[in-house]
């Protein structure tokens, strides 16, 4: 096999039901917007996104030796968003992660929502958001090109770090890992992986700038994503940049914040218990209560997704 399972592909069993379901809910909500946006693009978009998904899949095989027998390769979230636009990038990454999980068991099914969120959605948002910071046209095209490459490089590194941060938080919230161990370990490894991501992303983009600049000039176009993406990208980046060192140096602090917010209010040892320990108080600590808690949780999340998608539809209608 020429690809190693990326350390970010969480298998089933490592995330709790609640964390899995909430991640799925966020992922589905974002994806439903992405689908709406890409449906309005021209008809060429369908084969393009399909082949690009296969491209990202294949590009992940292209590795280069780093040191001591390890090798770096592309994960591709930021790259996909830069060359295709944020929404199409998200769908492409979703398809890649989905097929890796479903066909190759590289990542689980119940936790796929989290995997898509960590490696596909957040990475695309950062990638496009930071890239979009560069003005679309300037008097000095060479300088503008260098600026774009620089932004893409930063975005690529931050996208990997954001994925690692989210994964660590999810593992912690699932009671699968101790935050003070998993966070520094994950962020440490991915700071290195991120350098590989940056180098490949930047040199691949530079190659495209040299050979087919027309493909990247379109990427700045308004139809791919508005300036609001800059805020999204910068906001997530700041979140990563501020939270990572803070949480790594003082994980107890994060636990304290969480407990202050009420997650730990019941004094129980599971920080994820929005439905405390999967049981409903009025039914007592019985098996039925646990199952019912799961069902209610799923139902609530379903209702939230339903409402969000309804609201989105109303908005789109209002726009027209």
């Amino acid at each position: 096999m020429h690809f190693s399972p990326a350390p970010l592909h969480i298998p089933d069993g490592f995330l709790s039901i609640i964390v899995s379901v909430i991640s799925w809910a966020i992922t589905i909500a974002i994806l439903s917007v992405a689908v709406k946006h890409t449906e309005n693009l021209d008809e060429k978009q369908v084969p393009l996104m399909g082949v690009m998904a296969a491209f990202i899949f294949a590009a992940q095989m292209i590795n280069f030796p780093v040191a001591g027998g390890t090798s770096g390769h592309l994960l591709g979230g930021a790259f996909a968003a830069i060359i295709l636009g944020p929404w199409a990038g998200m769908l492409v990454m979703t398809a890649v992660i989905g097929v890796q999980g479903l066909l190759l068991q590289d990542g689980g099914l119940l936790v796929m929502g989290a995997n898509i969120l960590n490696m596909g959605l957040v990475t695309s948002a950062i990638g496009f958001g930071l890239y979009r910071l560069a003005p679309s046209s300037t008097e000095n095209p060479q300088q503008n090109r260098n600026l774009k490459l620089g932004l893409a490089g930063i975005a690529a590194w931050l996208s990997v770090m954001a994925g690692a941060l989210l994964t660590s938080l999810q593992l912690w919230l699932s009671d699968t890992a101790r935050l003070d161990i998993v966070l520094p370990a994950m962020l440490g490894i991915h700071a290195l992986i991120g350098i590989g991501e940056t180098l490949i992303t930047v040199s691949a983009l530079a190659f495209i700038f040299r050979t087919r600049p027309d493909l990247l000039d379109q990427a700045q176009g308004q139809e791919r994503g508005g300036r609001a993406w800059i805020f999204v990208g910068v906001a997530i980046s700041l979140f990563v940049l501020i939270l990572s060192p803070l949480a790594s140096s003082n994980p107890d602090g994060l636990e304290r914040v969480a407990s202050d917010l009420g997650f730990l209010a019941q004094g129980i040892d599971s920080p994820y218990s929005i439905l405390p320990d999967y049981t409903l108080p009025f039914l007592g600590d019985s098996a039925f209560s646990t199952v019912a808690a799961g069902v209610i949780g799923a139902f609530v999340v379903g209702a939230i997704i339903f409402i969000i998608s309804k609201m989105k539809r109303v908005n789109i209608r209002a726009d027209k």
Partner: peptide, 18 residues
């Protein structure tokens, strides 16, 4: 240099795919 070679290959693969 090695990373740039890999990046060029990714770029090439992208163009062919496009």
């Amino acid at each position: 240099w090695r990373a740039r070679t890999a990046g060029n290959m990714v770029g090439q693969l992208f163009l062919r795919s496009y």
